[in-house]
Every structure is written in structure tokens, then in C-alpha cells.
Design a protein around this nucleic acid. Structure first.
Lengths: 244, 244
DNA sequence: TCAATAGTGTCTGTTAGACATTATGGA
DNA sequence: TCCATAATGTCTAACAGACACTATTGA
């Protein structure tokens, strides 16, 4: 029987996590889909799966980090704990993706999994301790249990769908960045090229970035001014209606 | 132990549903938030809560329809079964809202609930049998268990957020409708008035409705042409980028 | 006839996207 | 100097919203 105050944080990190917190198999798992930018694409943090009790499986296998759900722990807190276990700190942003409960296979002995998506700034270094978490580009993803594969797909769609509503792009970048870097992130998330001048006009009219005094020169070409994310003010009364 | 082929459909409908399908309390519940239009506002289907074993509770209490989750049943199918139990048929549209697992109270003895939102056309009549489901306008909602109240709020936000991506407005209307009726639905969902001519231009350019040969005269005024929802064709290459 | 609602045509301000030009540093 | 990139000004087509007008019914 778990106490109400101790969080089962040690349950995260590695694959077949402790089942439940005492009695019988866990009712559900909480899985974290942690994205960052890996050479121009989204990348997701995976941990090495421990081989089953039988000891077979010569091939290397990976899973999302997850933990068994504890009945008395809020879902968001559980997901944050799973993420912290992998990252060494909290992700820059986190949101629930949904519940996944078809019959597809999952490393936890639970019929239901709740997925959360988190964002990590580009350039972040995973703590390289024994846990062995690594970022893998979505384009070249290793084999992952099918239920977790569905979570990764849904998480990517979730993040892409929230561009423009949530500061998603900014959480994939360090605190200061050039507008060209920001545009690359937006193009990655939206899946299409954007017009440079138009993109900057949109940013300016929404007052969503503010310039710093710092300029950065990278290789050849004119140096770029660094910007930071500006807190959103009152909403400018959305015009129009787009059917999409 | 439930068999893989029999769905526990009888578990829906009334409040403290059968816990699980045999052994111990259910791991999670599946709840349906069924919306329709009730005098100019969204309305949600509620069922009368059965009083607890103690028999107290003189005040009338309501809950969302729900069922105990069965490990071998896909979530969407479970939610559809719950909805069918209340409506006598499937809802016009259904989508998952998310998992709710903070410590808030829920009529099921489960720490976790998965909410689905469904839409029912305006004018639909609930089968008035002993179950006693009724639509209640969101503006005048009776007391509902707190976790279910959170689900209702999230479901309304979910539907509002998917206007323009999914045929949400059309599922709140009968198969044929006037453009004025459609505009009222959009205004209800978006929470703001729309410009009549501009609204119709948007519909026309998106080819999202098609006219029928039928005109309907309701009381005074010029009769209105009836339209039906047109299946969406190729996406017209979304222009622009709005920060909101 | 008047009131009420449906449906359209025209005008205007805003803006996304195209294009061109200037600015600034590295090679 | 040439080249690559940043930053910005100008033009145009598209479009949201305002306004006005016509059309068609019931009272």
C-alpha cells in the first residue's frame, strides 16, 4: 500500500517498471514523449529496454520512459517525474496527449497508458549516466512497442497542432535565438516553408518576440540579432474564420 | 474474468456502474460527454445518479453516463457503447478528450477516467425510458461530481478548439440545414458574432456546403435554401500564420 | 403595406506572399 | 573583391468586415 506522500519516482526510467506500488499489476502506465530537435527533424528520447525474464531478444530494443500509475498521484505530476528521471530536470513544456487503450502491446502490464508530451530545447545534453536515454530522430526510429509508437505519432501531431496556440516553438529553442532559427523550427513543426519577411511581420505584429542587444555572427554572412520570447498580452480579437 | 468477445455494455447508463467485470474495483472508467444544442447554448446529457448504498441524499443528483473500463475493449468502442446506451444509437461524431486522474471525486471507484465527447444533432429526442437521461444547458448545470465537471469543461473546450478542423458544427445539425442555422452554431461554438456575408463567402470558397433544391419557409421572411455538408476535398494549402 | 429574414454586390482596410534592395560580415 | 546571410521596403492579390441593396415571404 503506497503512502500518500511518497512519490514512486524510482518507477520511471527503465522498461518493465515496477508493476504498481505493491499489489498486482498496475492499472495504467504514464508515458513521456520527450521531443527535441535532432538534425532538422523532431527527435524523441528513448531508453534501452531491459530484456524480458526469459533473457532472449538479442536485438537492441527501445521504449519510451514510463512509470506505473499510482492512484493517489496526479497524472501531470507523474509524467513530470518520469521526464525528470530521464532529463535530470523538468522539460520546458509538457501537456497531456491522451489515453491509449486499444489492445496493442506495451512494456507495462497495464491495459491503459496515458501519454504526455514534453519539449526540450535544441542543444540540450542528456545526462549520460547508466540509464542510457538517447534522442532518436523520428525519421529513423528504432523498433518501439506498438502502443508507444502510436503515442509518439499522436504526440507529434499534438505538438504540431498547438503551434500558434502554445509557445511550442520557443520551448524547442534556448532562451535567446535568432529569427532564422525560430523560422526553421516553425517550418519543421508546420511541415512547410514560410516566407521570411511575412514570418517576421507576423512575429512583430503579435509582439511575440522581443530583441536583445546581442548579435551573433556564425560563419559568413551578416550577423543575426538575438531575440527572446515575449510573454503574451491580451488577445487581439481573432479575425476571420478559416476552414481547413 | 471477462471473455474477449462479450462487451460489458450493460455497465453503462446508471451511476455507480458495476465495478469492473468481475474481480475488484475497476481500474478506470470511460465517460461520455454528449453535447447537443439546448436553447442557444451547448447542452450535455446527464443521467440520474442512483443514491448510495446508505440511501441518504435527498437532493437530486446527476452524473455523466459512464462505464467501467474493460481491459480487452478498445476505449473508443467502450465510449461508443456508453453513448449508445443513452441515445439509443451512436452519436454523430465522437472523439477522445483525455484522461482525468487527479484526486477529484468520481462516482466510479476508479482513480482514472477517460473522457470522450460526442455530438448529437439539434432536435434529437432522447429515448424517454426508465434510464432518465436528460440534456442540461451548460449555463444551468446541476451539481455533478467534480471530476466529471472537469471533463465537461474540457470537452466543451475540445469541441470549440476543433471547429474548422473537424465537421463539428455540422454534427450539431440535422443532415440539411439553412445557412443561418449553421451560422448560429458557429457563433455558439466560437463565442462571437460572425459577419453574414463573410461567413457565406468562407463556406463557398471552402466548398464545405452544397445547396439542395429544397427551400424552407419558417414564419415571416424570405424562405431559406437548405444545404447539406459537402465532403472535404484536397486541402487548399493553408495560407498564413496566425499567432493567437 | 409593412416587417422580417434570406441572399448578394460593392467598397475598403488589412495582410500574406513575391520581389527587390540594402546591410554586414567572412572568405 | 565576391559571396552568403540578415533585415527591410514596396507592390499586389486575396480576403475579412462594413454597408447597402434586392428578394421573398407572412402578417
Amino acid at each position: 500500500m503506497p503512502t500518500a506522500t511518497s512519490r514512486p519516482r524510482a518507477a520511471a526510467r527503465r522498461a518493465p517498471a515496477r508493476a504498481g506500488a505493491g499489489a498486482g499489476p498496475a492499472a495504467y502506465s504514464v508515458d513521456a514523449v520527450l521531443f527535441t530537435v535532432v538534425d532538422g527533424d523532431l527527435g524523441v528520447a528513448l531508453v534501452r529496454a531491459t530484456p524480458g525474464p526469459g533473457g532472449e531478444r538479442p536485438r537492441e530494443r527501445w521504449t519510451l520512459p514510463f512509470a506505473a500509475g499510482a492512484p493517489d498521484e496526479p497524472l501531470q505530476a507523474a509524467a513530470a517525474a518520469v521526464a525528470e528521471e530521464v532529463l535530470g530536470g523538468p522539460p520546458a513544456w509538457m501537456e497531456q496527449v491522451g489515453a491509449f487503450g486499444d489492445g496493442r502491446r506495451h512494456p507495462a502490464p497495464a491495459p491503459l497508458s496515458v501519454a504526455y508530451v514534453g519539449l526540450v530545447p535544441d542543444g540540450f545534453e542528456l545526462p549520460g549516466d547508466e540509464g542510457g536515454a538517447e534522442f532518436h530522430a523520428l525519421a529513423s526510429l528504432p523498433a518501439v512497442p506498438p502502443r508507444q509508437k502510436a503515442m509518439i505519432d499522436a504526440a507529434a501531431a499534438h505538438v504540431r497542432g498547438r503551434v500558434g496556440q502554445a509557445p511550442v516553438a520557443f520551448r524547442l529553442l534556448p532562451p535567446t535565438f535568432t529569427l532564422s532559427e525560430l523560422q526553421v523550427i516553425y517550418e519543421l513543426l508546420l511541415g512547410r516553408r514560410l516566407h521570411k519577411a511575412s514570418f517576421r511581420r507576423s512575429l512583430q505584429s503579435a509582439r511575440i518576440v522581443e530583441p536583445t542587444e546581442v548579435w551573433r555572427s556564425e560563419g559568413r554572412g551578416r550577423p543575426a540579432q538575438l531575440f527572446r520570447h515575449a510573454l503574451k498580452r491580451k488577445r487581439p480579437a481573432a479575425r476571420g474564420l478559416r476552414f481547413d
